[in-house]
């Protein structure tokens, strides 16, 4: 038991305890939405690794601080002692310069590998032209017969290459469940690659401040199987579905957000 009074032992115990708590909070609890793209997995794993290392570093800092406060606190107002005149310790300083440097290089290399992985172009990729304007999204399908829509329908397990354009100001294309984001910039074409892997309905949200309607500039994203996509595409081509571009896509674009709002505002 005498060891427990040793401040260095206490730092170790605090570090263990805080790492456990913070690590559980940041890692074990599911803060991120479901993974709906093949890219989401590696990104989440990278996040988890960084979060766990971070939890340990944060715990270490807190533990040293807490232990110092407990052990080396001034006991009474009359205590006019000075602390030990330690000016430094070269070996220790080299250690806490070198270890973070190595950790950071490791984190950078790992991040670079994940980046290369998620941006890899794959065989059988389909292209969708995305046009952003205040405050609506239009999706233009180029393969086969061309058509446009205010809703984004994607076929599960198919790699997509989105080409982003903006008509007026900068917007940003983001589906949280895909974990991928890219600005749509007036004057240039940007791109982002996504391979949806989970059926469902998601919301695409604009994440670059674009004016008054920014908070409601959303669009519905539907990931479905090939057959369902074909039926939908057929309706689009024959003009029975929600029409493309301009006014209609405006409704389509705001639909998700506007509906949610109405539900909330209703007393």
């Amino acid at each position: 038991m005498r060891h427990l009074r040793n401040p260095y032992v206490q730092v170790g115990l605090w570090t263990f305890a805080i790492t456990l708590v913070v690590g559980t909070v940041v890692w074990a609890l599911p803060w991120e939405p479901e993974q709906a793209s093949t890219q989401a997995g590696p990104i989440d794993t990278l996040y988890d690794v960084l979060a766990l290392i971070s939890a340990f570093i944060f715990a270490l800092v807190c533990s040293i601080l807490i232990t110092a406060v407990i052990h080396f606190r001034k006991r009474s107002p009359d205590d006019l002692r000075d602390g030990d005149p330690l000016h430094g310790n070269t070996r220790l300083e080299i250690v806490w310069t070198a270890i973070p440097a190595i950790l950071m290089v490791g984190a950078a290399v790992y991040s670079g590998l994940v980046l290369a992985d998620i941006e890899e172009s794959k065989a059988g990729t389909r292209t969708v032209e995305v046009t952003a304007e205040q405050f609506a999204w239009t999706f233009e399908y180029a393969d086969g017969e061309q058509f446009r829509s205010g809703e984004l329908h994607l076929v599960k397990d198919t790699p997509y290459h989105f080409k982003l354009n903006a008509k007026d100001v900068i917007h940003s294309f983001w589906v949280p469940q895909f974990r991928l984001k890219k600005d749509a910039v007036p004057g240039i074409e940007t791109d982002v690659r996504v391979t949806p892997k989970r059926l469902g309905r998601y919301t695409l949200a604009c994440t670059e401040l674009c004016g008054l309607g920014h908070s409601t500039m959303r669009a519905t994203v539907i990931v479905e199987d090939q057959a369902a996509f074909n039926r939908w595409a057929q309706r689009q081509r024959s003009g029975r579905g929600p029409q493309a571009g301009g006014v209609v896509s405006q409704q389509g674009g705001q639909g998700a957000g506007a509906q949610e709002q109405q539900e909330q505002v209703a007393p």
Binding site: L50, A51, S111, R179
Partner: peptide, 20 residues
């Protein structure tokens, strides 16, 4: 804490999700 979340934002793949 602020520095640590900065490291996460520096990791490009994590930043792609969390930016903005």
């Amino acid at each position: 804490l602020g520095g640590i979340s900065g490291i996460m934002l520096a990791a490009i793949p994590v930043d792609i999700h969390t930016s903005d």
